[in-house]
């Protein structure tokens, strides 16, 4: 399923009180590929989807993830130390997308450039991913990616930030397809006590120039916070809190249980 179809379906569902947009927000759950093992990450992603996560965001592990906080760094390091390769990430995407859940990839730019931009877009599409999020690629530097993602019909998600000017927000969303990623705080990834007050304003600034769905990420850790963000966003993006379920679990079964519990809580949160 493409992510646009997922947004359409969610828009047709019941609208939680306090939400002005039609329907409900999607839950996007992030997990690094190959963490803690290739098979383990596939099991985690399937468990998240079965328990109510609408979209799986696979993160390609990278040695220098400057946009990520300690939890994702640690998970990525574990995956890389276990020897996960770019081709494994594509294999993981294929296994998860085969279950029917929409899959998007989040990746830093250098591994894609090394693989070959057009070849990667081709293989990503063949694996069944619908889109790609590029945290350190801005549209200004993305000529090759724009062409490759057009050629292979991969949705492009760039980031906007509270510090972005109105001009840059307009320029960035013009280059996005599927959804735009609004980083709700000035900072790196990681669950926080409170979600940001900057997020609603940033989402409103996107809405002023575009109808594109807006995903809000950075800081959401439970269903209640997902519900708050789901009042104004089209997608609630959750990463570190899910990864911590696996990091802190005594064994794989306990990790999957914790993932299912949190995923169900997040799914309930955006419907409440």
């Amino acid at each position: 399923m493409s992510i646009s179809v997922a947004f359409e379906k969610a828009r047709a569902e019941a609208r939680p009180s306090g939400r002005e947009r039609p329907g409900r927000a999607l839950v996007v759950g992030c997990m690094p590929a190959g963490f803690p093992t290739v098979e383990g990450s596939i099991a985690s992603m399937k468990a998240m989807a079965e328990a109510g996560v609408d979209v799986i965001e696979v993160e390609l592990p990278y040695s220098d993830p400057v946009m990520d906080g300690p939890v994702i760094q640690k998970a990525s390091d574990i995956a890389l130390a276990a020897g996960v390769r770019t081709r494994d990430t594509l294999r993981i995407i294929e296994a998860v997308a085969a279950t029917g859940v929409p899959v998007v990839l989040m990746t830093y730019w250098n591994p894609i450039e090394k693989y070959g931009v057009d070849a990667f877009a081709r293989d990503l599409a063949a694996a069944g991913a619908t889109g790609m999020i590029t945290p350190d690629l801005i549209p200004d530097e993305a000529q090759e990616w724009l062409a490759a993602s057009d050629a292979h019909k991969i949705d492009r998600t760039f980031l906007v930030s509270p510090s972005s000017t109105d001009d840059r927000i307009a320029m960035t969303v013009e280059h996005c397809r599927g959804f735009v990623y609004a980083t709700s705080i000035m900072g790196v990834t990681g669950a926080r006590e409170q979600t940001s007050s900057l997020a609603p304003e940033l989402v409103a600034r996107v809405r002023a120039v575009s109808d594109i769905p807006v995903g809000v990420g950075l800081g959401v850790r439970d269903g209640a916070q997902a519900g708050e963000v789901g009042r104004f966003a089209d997608a609630v993006i959750v990463g570190s809190a899910l990864i911590r379920c696996v990091l802190e679990a005594p064994d794989e079964a306990a990790g999957l249980d914790a993932l299912r519990t949190l995923s169900a809580d997040l799914a309930a949160g955006v419907r409440a």
Binding site: P135, D140, S161, P162, S163, S164, T172, T183
Partner: peptide, 12 residues
């Protein structure tokens, strides 16, 4: 050269 950075840094 160029800029391969998170959008959050572009304004700065």
């Amino acid at each position: 050269g160029g800029r391969f950075v998170p959008e959050a840094l572009v304004a700065a």
